[in-house]
Design a protein around this nucleic acid. Structure first.
Length: 974
RNA sequence: GCCGAAGUGGCGGAAUUGGCAGACGCGCAGGAUUCAAAAUCCUGUUGGGCUCACACCCAGUGAGGGUUCGAUUCCCUCCUUCGGCACCA
């Protein structure tokens, strides 16, 4: 019999699957579709980089492939697609450097990475492949942008609604515009407390009283996609602005490590903040790892507290406070400092205030004596780059403005300072400083000798200075003695009645900066018309294709003051167009969308990838994303009344938490916040507008751990490549000199010389071995080190499976005519174990069980043909090529991919007797074999009859007897 | 600094609800096979003590304490590593 020729086998079966369309999954309504329960198992699609596949990629892909193959054998319709996140900076940077069009390099990189992915024999339905750079794909990315642009967030229904509804409400007078230009409902204030849109009482404008362009601009302010002048991270060397998350802690660009400067620029923004509460609340229904949910909650950063007004000393008279009794204005007057605090209970301890350097009142209130110093400080803060700001973060700086404000509860004048430890971007850009109970305020107060007043008494005798936890109020007037939580509530109510404050909520989450000044991204379907302003293209004008350009490089500059100059501005023919509204000359938007755009919805396009009428057919979307639980056939989904927070009826325990969306989504934890938050946001918008049927895109999420590898350094700290190391002894040594090397586990990187290339491993051992090794290394969600020296171990298992069926030169095959009862029992145990482990994503222990089974067969020396076939079905999800080949050798002419998953007989697994350890005082002294149905008394009698147990008990008093059925016996003696 | 995850043999790791610590694999040692080697098959392998050996005894899951008949598992304190956030009022 021929040996295990993995290279030939793997090629053969990959070609077979491709030729027979084994993994093509038809949609409902298509030819070949069979009505069955569905399972959507998704991988985070890769960015096709020039470097190709990394050993980290196939880890998740193998896990999902095992699940996909297992579910298919269980009789599910399995959707298992793959595609490419192919827009983005690296392709463009490379293209600029090499002078090749990004489309060319992107195509080349996709071809290479797909070749690599295909080597693993994953059961993807390749007919559904998409790439975000395909025109037919980004057409729909642009379409979703239009949905965002043509919607607003209606706080009354807490959802996105068509912008036309806002216009209608304004036209009908249901909403009006107040003096500060804000939109307010034309109803009594306080009806919508969270809206921050309270009417000021008089001076409201009716919509129809506004000029046409005013109306246009007003409406634009409320769109989910809007333009705003915001402080952005401007990177002149990349010629683009960057999102906060693309900037490192050191204030440099994530890609390229170039300096980044903070400056205000007009940009496209997406109103993700409107969804902050829903993004937090809906985490509750998701079957996601808790740490990831925590990271998202953290990122959104909701804090509940109060806004409190402090009048300047010059106006804070008795009359002012009396006047305030009539109500708190929506926006503070120019002689009032509004602060946000999460600790209104510490108001009596506010001994000074701090304004952010960018705060508009700084210039207003600074006294002439302090003017020079303050201006210098503000100017210096402005010129600081992110780098400098973080470098100086330890040491507090600031200057006194010379002005004072009145603490609204103590009625004492407190000094107002300017300091850059207060940021304009959070809260109101001003704080009340309570140095006794806030670490930062205390540092500042100590440095500048400002008064520190205790207002919280710690309950457990700690020092009150710097005590930031909850305690009991002290030095707080009639609030003294109240626990922190009570005084918070009461003082907030009292402030509200006095018109001095109100409950308020703040988020760390900012609106999503959505434009980039680059070529290789989706163009915005927007034109700028001198007559009509910003105008969206109609859907019929999509796709808006990127223009062909010879020079698509952005204007890179080392000058921090250089202006953005997007490459698209140079495509003059493309740039100049006509306004879709008035037909006059207009210019196209020259920004492009960020890389995150395409990955926000790719899982929806897989469902119906060639649909040229719709993003996705609603019936198909409902089938694959449907919220019915696993195992039940998907029925029609009620789009109008989605059931949030309730499990579908008929789900068993395991299936709770299934509220629709992708049934299993696997990827790295590096996308814990951004991709997953952005995608959830888009999905909710699409849900609100009726384009999808579920509130969440990904019902179950699993994060694979990072694969790192051993790095070796000599005593000078130089990294040594594996080829130069002698591993034969007990310690790794340098081959050349025998010097002992220091081992550590690190991320793979060229400089550490510890990179493992999947191509090389596959060439040496085959894809089945590679898959098996990555799954056997340890738990999927743990970070673990790659160790090439362990690979032969799992390869040996493949060899043993092969020889078990086929034999070898010096070993006969173990296939026998009779079946061994012990093997039969072990096989049932194995089927049960693997089924449970695959469902729990515990692939490493499933593989260990398969190894044990094979070891048993070797020991027994016999496996029947029937048993061998069932075993092939069990290993098939893990090592599909090997299993297919042996399956066909066992006499089958068709793939096993759609064979039924083997069943096990619970009755066969039941034992007649069980061996129990017998402990005396918690120490094991003996073992007894007892019938499984023995009574406690019988077990005890047998246990005490054991010679060693009897010896240990001899001469002592038995105090207690513990029998855990089927587990152990413990006898406590004195 | 804050939040999260983790720490078990020479190495990767296993251990159901608090119930036999070290499954499985690597490595190592010994044996079989072989002219020999590789490969393969079999056996052993936490450390220490004692023993010709079997047996037996003691210690042991980062460190220290606690709860319990019994703790890798639960609680407290501390140490280390990794991931995330970072003056967020």
């Amino acid at each position: 019999m021929a040996g295990y020729d993995f290279a030939a086998i793997e090629k053969k079966w990959q070609e077979y699957w491709e030729k027979h369309g084994t993994f093509v999954q038809p949609n409902p309504g298509e030819q070949g579709f069979v009505e069955r329960p569905k399972y959507y198992v998704l991988d985070m699609f890769p960015y096709p980089s020039g470097a190709g596949l990394h050993v980290g990629h196939p880890e998740g892909y193998t896990a999902t492939d095992i699940v996909a193959r297992y579910r298919r054998m269980q009789g599910f319709n399995v959707l298992h697609p793959m595609g490419y996140d192919s827009f983005g900076l690296p392709a463009e940077q490379y293209a600029v450097e090499q002078g090749v069009h990004p489309r060319v390099t992107t195509a080349r990189n996709i071809a290479n990475i797909e070749r690599q992915i295909r080597m693993f024999g994953f059961s993807y339905d390749w007919s559904r492949r998409v790439a975000t750079t395909d025109v037919e794909y980004y057409r729909w990315t642009q379409w979703i942008f239009l949905q965002l642009y043509n919607s607003w967030f209606d706080p009354e229904v807490n959802a996105a609604r068509p912008i036309a509804e806002l216009e209608a409400k304004l036209q009908s007078g249901q909403f009006v515009v107040n003096l500060s230009g804000d939109l307010v409902p034309n109803i009594s204030p306080n009806k919508i407390p969270d809206l921050n849109l309270q009417a000021v009482g008089m001076g409201n404008l009716k919509f129809y009283e506004l000029e046409a362009d005013q109306r246009h601009r007003l409406i634009d302010e409320y769109r989910l996609a809007y333009q705003a002048e915001v402080p952005v991270n401007w990177c002149p060397m990349l010629g683009t602005v960057l999102a906060n998350e693309e900037v490192t802690n050191e204030g440099r660009s994530d890609r390229g490590n170039f300096p980044v400067y903070r400056r205000p620029l007009r940009q496209w923004m997406l109103r993700i903040t409107a969804y902050a509460d829903r993004l937090i609340d809906d985490l509750g229904v998701l079957d996601w790892p808790e740490p990831i949910k925590a990271m998202q909650r953290n990122w959104i950063g909701k804090s509940v507290g109060a806004e409190v007004d402090f009048p300047l000393e010059s106006v804070g008279t008795e009359e002012w406070f009396e006047r305030r009794g009539r109500g708190m204005p929506a926006a503070p007057e120019l002689d009032v400092i509004r602060v946000f605090t999460t600790r209104p209970d510490t108001l009596f301890g506010a001994t000074y205030m701090v304004l952010a350097p960018e705060h508009e009142l700084v210039a207003e209130i600074t006294t002439p004596q302090q003017k020079q110093e303050v201006e210098a400080y503000v100017q210096a803060a402005k010129n600081k780059s992110e780098l400098e700001r973080s470098a100086e973060s330890k040491d507090k700086t600031g200057v006194f403005t010379g002005a004072y404000a009145i603490n609204p509860v103590t009625r004492q004048a407190i000094p107002i300072w300017v300091a850059d430890y207060v940021m304009m971007g959070y809260g109101t850009g001003a704080i009340m400083a309570v140095p006794a109970h806030d670490t930062r305020d205390m540092e500042f107060a100590e440095k500048f000798a400002l008064p520190i007043v205790q207002v919280v008494q710690p309950t457990a005798g700690q020092d009150w200075r710097g005590f930031i936890d909850d305690g009991v109020a002290i030095n707080s007037g009639h609030y003294d003695g109240l626990p922190t939580s009570d005084i918070k509530q009461q003082i907030t109510d009292d402030l509200h009645k006095a018109g001095l404050g109100k409950q308020a909520v703040n988020y760390k989450l900012r609106d999503w900066l959505f434009s980039r000044q680059r070529y290789w991204g989706e163009p915005f379907p927007i034109v700028h018309c001198p007559a009509c302003g910003t105008v969206a293209l109609p859907e019929s004008a999509l796709p808006l294709m990127l223009p062909e350009m010879d020079d698509f490089s952005p204007a890179a500059s080392e000058d921090p003051n250089a202006l953005p100059s997007p490459p698209l501005a140079k495509a003059t023919e493309w740039l100049n167009t006509t306004c879709p509204r008035c037909g006059g000359p207009a210019r196209r938007e020259t920004n492009t969308m960020p890389q995150w755009a395409g990955s926000c919805w790719y899982f929806l396009r897989y469902l119906d990838p060639r649909n040229d009428k719709q993003l996705v057919d609603p019936a198909i979307e409902a089938y694959w994303m449907g919220s019915e639980c696993v195992g039940k056939p998907a029925g029609p989904t009620n789009r109008a009344t989605p059931t949030r927070g309730t499990a579908a009826p008929g789900c068993d325990e395991r299936e709770k938490g299934q509220h629709g969306g992708v049934d299993l989504y696997v990827g790295g934890a590096e996308h814990a916040v951004l991709h997953l938050l952005y995608a959830r946001f888009w999905h909710k918008v699409l849900f609100d507008l009726g384009h999808v049927s579920t509130v969440e895109p990904f019902g179950k999420l699993f994060n694979q751990g990072m694969i790192r590898s051993f790095a070796y350094r000599d005593r000078r700290g130089m990294c040594i490549g594996y080829d130069d190391i002698d591993f034969s002894g007990d310690k790794p040594r340098l081959k050349a000199t025998g010097e002992e090397l220091i081992e550590s586990v690190e991320k793979m990187s060229k400089s550490l010389k510890n990179v493992v290339n999947p191509d090389v491993v596959i060439a040496g051992y085959g894809a089945d071995t590679f898959r098996l090794y990555e799954m056997f290394m340890g738990p999927l969600d743990a970070s673990k080190p790659w160790n090439t020296r362990d690979v032969p171990g799992v390869h040996r298992f493949c060899q043993r499976v092969w020889r078990m069926i086929c034999g070898s030169e010096d070993m006969a095959a173990l296939i026998k005519d009779q079946s061994d009862a012990q093997v039969e029992k072990a096989l049932h145990k194995l089927i049960k174990k693997v089924s449970e482990d695959v469902e729990a994503m515990k692939f490493n222990t499933a593989i260990a069980a398969m190894m044990e089974f094979v070891n048993l067969v070797y020991k027994t020396g016999a496996i029947s043909k029937d048993q061998a076939q069932r075993f092939m079905l069990v290993v098939a999800p893990f090592t599909p090529h090997l299993a297919e080949e042996l399956w066909s050798m066992l006499g089958h002419s068709q793939s096993l991919a759609h064979e039924a998953w083997p069943k096990y007989d619970e009755a066969l697994l039941e034992e007649l007797t069980v061996e129990l350890p017998v402990q005396v005082n918690g120490k094991i002294r003996g073992r007894v074999v007892v019938p499984v149905d023995a009574t406690q008394e019988q077990v005890l009698a047998l246990a005490l009859a054991d010679a060693k147990v009897a010896a240990a008990v001899e001469g002592k008093t038995v105090v207690k007897r513990i029998v855990v059925p089927g587990r152990m016996v413990n006898i406590v003696v004195k």
